[in-house]
Structures are given as C-alpha cells and as structure tokens.
Amino acid sequence: MLDSIKKLSDRKKQAADIISNCTNRLRSGWNPWADISNSRQFTKFDDICELYRKYLIKMTSTAALKQKTQTDYLSRLSILIDYNQNLPIPIIYIYQFTRAYVSDFLDHIFLDRDTSARTRNNYRVWLSAFSAWLIEKQYLEKNPVEGIKSLEETEKFRSALEREDLIRLKDYLYKVDRYYLLACRMEYYTFIRPDELSNIRLRDINIKEQKVFIASTISKNRRDGMVGLNDELIKLMIELQIFSYHSECYLFGRDFKPSTKKADSRIFRENFIKVRAALKFPKNYQFYSLKDSGIRDLANAEGIVIARDQARHSDISTTNKYLKGQNMTVHEETKHFNGAF
C-alpha cells in the first residue's frame, strides 16, 4: 500500500504512523474483526449511558415514566457504570455490551453484592429494557439478555460451612495465604458484603474500639453502619502489620494486601473457587457461605438479636434512624465470641 512513496525513509515514517494509530485504536477497544453493521455501534459506552440518563429524565418530565421507575432505572444504571469502571479492562464501545458482559454483570449483582434471586431477576428485566432501547436507536442489533435465564426465586444453593471444614479452611489458608485468610475471617466475623468489603479503607477501622464503619456511600442499604471486630481479626491484622500502611489504603487490594488501588469485589469469590478446589469442598460452599456460617455461630453463641445487629439486617431500621455514623454502637459480644474460624 505504501509503494507509491518513493523515498524509503518517508515510507517507513508513514508505516510507523499507521502502526501507532492502529495500536492506539486497539488499546481503546477497537476490534477490526467485530461484526459491526453501522458506525453507531462504535459509540462510546459512557456516552450512551449519559444519553440514556437524559432520556429517562425527559420521559419522567412528560409523565411517560413514573418517578419511582426513573429512580430505580437510574440507580441500576449507576451501578452498571460503576461496575464497568472498576473492571480490569472496562468496555469502551457499545458493541462490547455482549451477552457475556451482561451475564458477568448479573453474577456481580447476585454474588458480589449479595442480592436475592428476585433482585438479580429485576436487574435482568431492566437490562433487557435497556437493550431494547439500544436496538431501537440502532446501537445494537441483538438483545444480549436473550438466552440468560431468570433464577428460581425460592432456590438457595449456597450453604454454611460445617465446623470441621471451617477449621480445615483456617489451617490451610494460614499456611498458604494469610492475607486471604483475613478476607475470609472478615466475612465470617463481620458479615460485611463483598462489594462493601472491597471499599473498606484502613481509616474506617477503629482498632482501639474494635469496630468498622461502613459508610452509606458503600453500603447496600445506603445507610451508615457499624460492626464489631472480633479479637481473632485484630490479632491477625497486627500479625500481618496491616496498620503499617497509610490510612487511605483499601484494606484489600488485588493481592488481598492493603493498597491505594481498589480491587474488584469479584476477587473474593474467584479466589475462593481455587481454595475450594484445593480442599475438595462441595460447590455449595462459596465465599459468601462464610457469612452464613458466622451468623449461625454467633447466634448460637450469643443470641439471635446480637447476630441480627452485627449483620445490619433490616429489622433494626428503626434503631438506625436514631444513630448516625461514628456514634453507632456495636455489641461487645461480637468482639470476643469464640468462633470456629
């Protein structure tokens, strides 16, 4: 293609420019083999989300959409945008909004954010409506939600770990990866959801009073929360010199060590799958099973009310109205009960 350029140095310069341009486009998400039928499918994902947000607001202002529906849709859109931004390799163009991407996002909603099957199914319905809008505007040709089934809303595959398996897991991780052991113990003792756990910074931990603050900005229920830190957690944190890191560091980075860079919440689940295989645990043992195990053991040891409060369950929403931020109390029993893990 460059034979028409007579001078060799000019020919090489032109070739280098073409290579550089193609490389930059590839790094930004361009795929020369993608099945793209029109240029609109190369519209940037962030631009599409902003356009959809304006569309929802306009539809509500003309009474074509209920205010509650707009609020729900905008909330789900915000979570989708946040999910994409925190991916190791976020999508850039709307044609990358594929069935595989949607399926991974729904797994994130169901597993990492610890929602019910009904909530996950509601997200699926919204994603289908969003995709239909994309097809109508010719940003997509096919609905990526098609083929992704709804979950049985009464089904619960996950189960708590038996006491002997908790001990096996503890002994194994203490030898292999004590930082991931800390992550697992945080789930068992504090019941903090994986998505919230990935957002906890060292500044949120009060080691003297043995408690962790969960801000409303990272909490699933959008309320401030406070949970107790068990003695075993404090001992392991001191052993790992966790508090030698800067207070702005996230408690768990990609390698489960404190880091200035936020890790994707999926790391807890993905690493547990490897550990589960190594220990030959059943598939119904999942990372979030540690929360089930902890609630069971704390309730048996100290009572259901204490376990309920430590889990920040909705039954105490009235109490939460009278407590704000750092003034929230935690039960002393959560700090000292003798668990199996």
Rank of each mutant, 00 (worst) to 15 (best):
E153W: 10
R163P: 11
Y101A: 02
E162M: 14
R158A: 05
R113F: 02
A132K: 15
V125M: 06
A160S: 14
A129Q: 15
Q96W: 00
K142N: 11
E162L: 12
A160H: 11
N121I: 12
F105P: 00
W126R: 04
D104M: 03
Y93E: 09
D82Q: 15
P144G: 01
F97T: 02
F130P: 03
R118C: 09
I91S: 08
S128F: 02
L140R: 02
Q96G: 00
V145E: 03
V102N: 01
N143T: 08
T154I: 06
L134S: 00
F157A: 12
R120I: 07
K142A: 12
D114E: 15
N84Y: 00
L87I: 06
E155F: 13
I135R: 04
N121F: 12
P88I: 02
R99Q: 14
G147P: 08
S128P: 02
E136N: 11
N122T: 00
T115L: 15
A100H: 03
L161R: 09
A117F: 08
L106S: 02
Q85F: 13
D114C: 15
W133Y: 14
E136S: 05
R118F: 13
R163E: 15
R158V: 03
V125K: 04
Q138I: 08
N121H: 12
R99C: 08
E141C: 12
I89H: 12
L134N: 01
R118L: 10
V102W: 00
R118A: 11
W126N: 06
E153F: 10
R163M: 14
V125I: 08
Y83V: 02
I89T: 10
N122E: 06
F110G: 04
S131R: 03
Y139C: 04
S131C: 10
S116M: 08
S159I: 09
F97H: 01
D82A: 12
D82V: 08
E155Q: 13
I148H: 08
P88M: 08
R163A: 15
Y139N: 02
L87K: 04
E155N: 13
E141P: 09
F130Q: 05
N86P: 05
H108L: 05
R99A: 12
I94Q: 04
K142S: 12
W133E: 14
K156D: 12
W133R: 14
Q138F: 09
F110K: 03
E141A: 11
E153N: 13
D107S: 13
R120H: 14
R124Q: 05
A117N: 14
F105W: 02
A160F: 11
Y83I: 05
E155M: 11
S116I: 07
I148D: 03
L106Y: 06
G147S: 08
E152I: 10
S116H: 07
F97L: 03
T98Q: 06
I148C: 06
S131H: 05
A129T: 13
L106E: 06
Y93S: 06
L127I: 01
W133M: 10
R99S: 09
E152V: 04
W126S: 04
E162P: 12
N122A: 03
R113P: 06
T119S: 11
Y101T: 02
W133A: 09
V102D: 00
L106M: 07
R118W: 13
Q96S: 02
S103P: 03
Q85V: 11
